[in-house]
Simulated assay, not measured.
Amino acid sequence: MERFSFASRFGLPRTIIAGFVLLLFVMAPIVGADLTMQVGNVINRFSWNAVLVLAMVPMIHSGSSLNFGIPLGIIAGLLGGTLAIQLGATGPVSFFIAILLATPFALLLGGGYGWLLNRIKGGEMMIATYVGLASIAFMCMMWLLLPYTSPTMVWGLSGKGLRTTISLDGFYGGALANFLQIPIDPANGLYFPTGAILFFALLALGMWAFLHTKTGTAMTAVGSNPLFARASGINVDKMRLLSVIMSTWLGAVGILVYQQGFGFMQLYMAPNNMTLPTVAAILIGGAAVNKATIPHVIIGTILYQSVVTLTPTVMTAMIHMDVSEVVRIIISNGMIVYALTRKVKGGSR
C-alpha cells in the first residue's frame, strides 16, 4: 500500500524516468565511462538550464499555460547580451549589464505577449507556440539588419549582420560558473559551478517568497479557479499579465545564465531548440498544467539533463550508435503529451 501511494504521488512516468537515470549512472562505469565526469556534467548542465525551467513557474501558476512562447524571453536576453558586447562591457560585470539591458525588452515583449494571451483565453498554448516561432523567424531577419558594429559579433567580410555563434571569451563567459568554483576533476577541466548554483538558488528563493505573498497567492488562485478569483475581487487579467512578464524576464535571465556556462551565444534559429527541453523538464519534475513548484523545477531539470547527458555516453559505448537524440525526442514529447492529455485536479499526481 505504501509503495502504491508513493507511485501514485510521484507518478509512473517520473518513476520510469528516474529508474532509467539510475540505470544510466550504474551502467556508466561498467561500460568504461568516468562516473565522476558524468556527474559533474549533469551538475553543470543543471546550472545552465535551471533558470530557464524556473521561468515556466509564473505562467503555470496563473493558468496561462505552459510557456511555449519562451523564445520571446530568450530574444530579450540575446538583445541584452549583444548590446552589452556592442557597448564594450567586458568581464563578469558584463553579465549583469546584459541583464540590465535585457530587462526593458523583456518587459515590453512580455507585456505585449501577456495582453495577447488575455485576449484569447483557452487557446494560450496554440498562440504561445505561434508567437514563439514567429518571433524567432522575425529575429532571423533582424540579426542581419540591426546596426551592430562590434568586430566580435559581425561577419568579417561584409561587416554587417551578426554571426551565428559568438564567443563570450573576455565578456561574460563563465561569469557565474567561475565564481567560487570547486574542483571536481581539474585534469579534465571539471569544476562545481558554485556561483551559477547560488544564482539559481537566489532566484528560486525569490520565486518561492513571491508565491507566498498576497499577490502570489492571488496569482495561484487565478490559475486554480479564475471564476472564484474574479468573484473574490481579484483582477484576473492583471495577474495573468504579471505572470507572463515575470516568465519572460526569467527567460531572458535564463538564456544569459545558459550562455555564460556554455561559453557562446547562439542566434537565429537557436532559441527554438530551448522550448521543448524546458517544457519537458518542468513536466518531468511533476508539474501539471496549472501547478508548478520549485521542487518540480529542480527534480525535472536534474532528470532531464541526466538523460541527455548520460544517454550518449552509455548507449554509444554499448551499441556503438548514438541514439541520444531519439531518446530526447521521445521523453520530451511523451511527457508533454502525458501532461496535456491527462485530467488534472488540484495539481500533479
Results as ranks from 00 to 15, higher is better:
T217R: 15
L87Y: 11
L144D: 10
M335R: 09
A287G: 09
A177M: 05
G174E: 08
S332I: 02
F264H: 12
V42T: 10
K121R: 13
P226M: 00
L303G: 09
V39Q: 01
G32A: 04
V323T: 04
C140R: 07
L133G: 14
I97G: 09
G156L: 10
L242K: 11
Q181H: 11
T217Y: 14
M142K: 12
I319K: 08
L100M: 13
R119I: 12
M321S: 04
T341L: 14
M59N: 11
E325K: 00
P71D: 12
I302R: 06
D169T: 14
I60T: 09
A106P: 14
V222Q: 08
H296E: 06
R230W: 00
G251E: 03
M142T: 14
G156P: 15
T215W: 04
A229K: 05
V307Q: 00
G263C: 00
D237G: 15
A280E: 01
G346T: 00
L162G: 15
W208P: 13
P71Q: 13
V236N: 10
G122D: 08
H61C: 15
A134Y: 06
T341Q: 11
M153D: 03
A287M: 03
G111I: 08
S62V: 12
M269L: 05
G132F: 04
G69Q: 09
N272V: 05
I97H: 00
L23Y: 12
L242Y: 08
L205N: 05
M239I: 02
G159W: 12
I182M: 10
P104I: 13
L211V: 09
M27P: 07
N188F: 07
S247D: 03
T15C: 04
N333K: 02
I17Q: 07
I284Q: 03
N273T: 09
F4Y: 06
H212P: 02
L227D: 09
P58E: 05
I184A: 12
G206C: 02
I234Q: 06
V257Q: 12
L79A: 14
T316V: 04
A196M: 11
V236W: 03
G195K: 09
T341D: 05
A288G: 15
G286F: 06
M315C: 08
V244C: 09
R328K: 08
A18D: 00
